[in-house]
Simulated assay, not measured.
Amino acid sequence: MECIVHFDVHHKDGVKQLRGLIFLPEDKKIPSEKDLLQMFMEMGYKLRMDNRDRMIFTPTEPGSGYEWIRVRELDTGEKTYKEDAELKSLLSNLIPQDFRPI
């Protein structure tokens, strides 16, 4: 399965909107952090995950020509996945984090 990754590269003088492609196994619906980092590495970006909730990556090398990268959308062709940070925050506050048996 293919996943088109739409992302923004934030430079000091502006933002570039780019896309990348990840090939996923049939049993996998969306790419993992490792998949995204591998795609960026193949494109010449050496990054680390800085904010998982907002899908923001920052460069690992000093002096890179960009400040950070944010994944906007993951398109698998079946259903577009857009992360809604507000909804995720709301749900994380409503769902108990401690799963204890009754």
Rank of each mutant, 00 (worst) to 15 (best):
residue 1 M to N: 11
residue 2 E to W: 03
residue 3 C to R: 00
residue 4 I to H: 00
residue 9 V to L: 05
residue 10 H to F: 15
residue 10 H to D: 09
residue 11 H to Y: 14
residue 11 H to G: 01
residue 12 K to H: 12
residue 13 D to I: 09
residue 13 D to V: 08
residue 13 D to S: 09
residue 13 D to T: 12
residue 14 G to P: 05
residue 15 V to R: 05
residue 17 Q to G: 05
residue 20 G to F: 00
residue 21 L to P: 05
residue 21 L to F: 04
residue 22 I to N: 01
residue 22 I to G: 02
residue 22 I to V: 14
residue 23 F to P: 00
residue 23 F to V: 15
residue 24 L to S: 04
residue 26 E to S: 11
residue 27 D to S: 10
residue 28 K to V: 15
residue 28 K to S: 03
residue 29 K to S: 10
residue 31 P to F: 01
residue 32 S to W: 11
residue 32 S to T: 15
residue 34 K to V: 10
residue 34 K to M: 07
residue 34 K to S: 09
residue 35 D to W: 03
residue 35 D to H: 09
residue 36 L to N: 04
residue 36 L to M: 12
residue 36 L to W: 04
residue 38 Q to M: 06
residue 38 Q to Y: 09
residue 40 F to G: 06
residue 40 F to Q: 04
residue 41 M to C: 11
residue 41 M to G: 07
residue 42 E to A: 10
residue 42 E to R: 13
residue 43 M to G: 03
residue 44 G to L: 04
residue 45 Y to D: 05
residue 45 Y to C: 06
residue 46 K to G: 08
residue 47 L to G: 02
residue 48 R to M: 13
residue 49 M to C: 12
residue 50 D to Y: 10
residue 51 N to I: 04
residue 53 D to E: 15
residue 54 R to T: 12
residue 54 R to Y: 09
residue 55 M to V: 04
residue 56 I to N: 02
residue 57 F to G: 00
residue 60 T to P: 02
residue 61 E to M: 12
residue 61 E to L: 14
residue 62 P to Y: 07
residue 62 P to L: 06
residue 63 G to R: 02
residue 65 G to M: 10
residue 67 E to P: 00
residue 67 E to H: 07
residue 68 W to D: 13
residue 69 I to R: 01
residue 70 R to W: 00
residue 70 R to Q: 15
residue 71 V to Q: 03
residue 71 V to F: 01
residue 72 R to N: 13
residue 73 E to H: 02
residue 75 D to N: 11
residue 76 T to W: 02
residue 76 T to H: 03
residue 77 G to R: 02
residue 78 E to C: 04
residue 79 K to L: 06
residue 79 K to E: 14
residue 79 K to C: 05
residue 80 T to Y: 03
residue 80 T to I: 08
residue 81 Y to R: 05
residue 82 K to V: 02
residue 83 E to Q: 13
residue 84 D to E: 09
residue 85 A to Y: 08
residue 89 S to N: 13
residue 89 S to W: 12
residue 89 S to K: 13
residue 90 L to N: 06
residue 90 L to E: 15
residue 90 L to I: 12
residue 91 L to Q: 07
residue 92 S to V: 07
residue 93 N to W: 08
residue 93 N to Q: 14
residue 94 L to C: 05
residue 94 L to A: 08
residue 94 L to E: 09
residue 97 Q to G: 04
residue 98 D to N: 11
residue 98 D to I: 09
residue 102 I to N: 08
